[in-house]
């Protein structure tokens, strides 16, 4: 009796404290998203909005070759970048958590965190400086006499976008994996070895499945935002490397077709969420299978 009364007052207190931040996020995120959704069903002719319901924007998004190409290209780049970053981040996080001596961990985390917070724009731009026609790589190679004309395959294409994005998102992928690995009870590893596992078997049966939540988090943290990246394709992508975010911007700003832009944005969000959902589902199946094996 007393306990339930206590719970009620706790719940009231919790609700009253959360109400303000929740209201803020509903007002500035949920409501705008809903309006964006509404907008995607309207049409715009220069500056006037026609608010009759239509699916034309979505139809155009999914059938017009240019949008479809951009969408699939964004997805492809995003997937490659995610695989690259998570693939490189995993051994780094593994080193930090399981190999590095304890007194060096904080320093390593700090090292990984610094680029995390330095200007994203500058970090992307530096790759333009490195890979561009007159950039560090080409300029230096010509200056040193290795080549006569700039290498054109290293910049203003999808390759450059992938390299740049992977580099920019690497630290974001390391930290979640590291945090989860740190939580893995070290006696699990000893127990596995004690029960006859070689270090490799132990990694496959214990470390990998137990660090999977970190891999999932890293994957989502990298995959979802990169599909909507605007800066990188604009700076190092060239015409061949443009992605869906650049088209969204054009629709909202230059083309004055906000409804189409909204449809593009929401379609991209839908696409990325479904792929992420499938990934999370596959991961569950993997974990189940690993337990059963």
């Amino acid at each position: 009796m007393i306990k339930s009364a206590q719970l009620d007052s706790d719940a009231r207190r919790g609700l009253s404290q959360i109400s303000l931040p929740l209201a803020f996020s509903v007002l500035l995120l949920a409501a705008p998203l809903a309006i964006l959704l509404a907008m995607s069903f309207w049409t715009q002719d220069f500056l006037t909005l026609d608010r009759t319901f239509t699916l034309a924007n979505f139809k155009e998004t999914w059938t017009s070759p240019i949008y479809r190409t951009l969408m699939l290209r964004s997805l492809k780049i995003s997937i490659i970048v995610t695989v690259l970053t998570v693939g490189l981040a995993y051994p780094a996080a593994y080193y930090m958590s399981f190999v590095a001596p304890n007194n060096r961990k904080a320093m390593l985390v700090f090292l990984i965190t610094i680029p995390f917070w330095t200007s994203y724009l500058m970090r992307i731009f530096l790759w333009k400086v490195i890979l561009g026609f007159n950039g560090v790589v080409n300029g230096s190679l010509i200056g040193l006499g290795f080549i006569d004309t700039p290498l054109d395959w290293i910049s203003y294409n999808q390759f450059a976008v992938i390299i740049t994005l992977s580099h920019a998102w690497l630290p974001f992928a390391v930290l979640p994996i590291f945090v989860v690995m740190e939580k893995v009870n070290r006696s699990y590893l000893e127990a596995a070895q004690d029960l006859g596992d070689t270090p490799f078997q132990r990694f496959r049966r214990i470390t990998l499945p137990l660090s999977m939540p970190g891999v999932v988090a890293a994957t989502l943290i990298v995959f979802i935002p990169t599909i909507g990246d605007y800066v990188t394709p604009k700076l190092v992508g060239g015409p061949d490397g443009l992605m869906i975010a650049n088209m969204i911007e054009i629709q909202f700003k230059n083309a004055n077709n906000a409804p189409l832009g909204a449809a593009l944005a929401l379609s991209a969000l839908l696409l990325v969420s479904s792929v992420a959902g499938i990934f999370v589902w596959l991961n569950r199946r993997y974990l189940k299978a690993e337990g059963a094996a």
Partner: peptide, 16 residues
Amino acid sequence: PNMRPTNMVFQSYAIF
């Protein structure tokens, strides 16, 4: 440890 004829019950039990 994996090649030794011993097995251990850990203090924390280490149940996976």
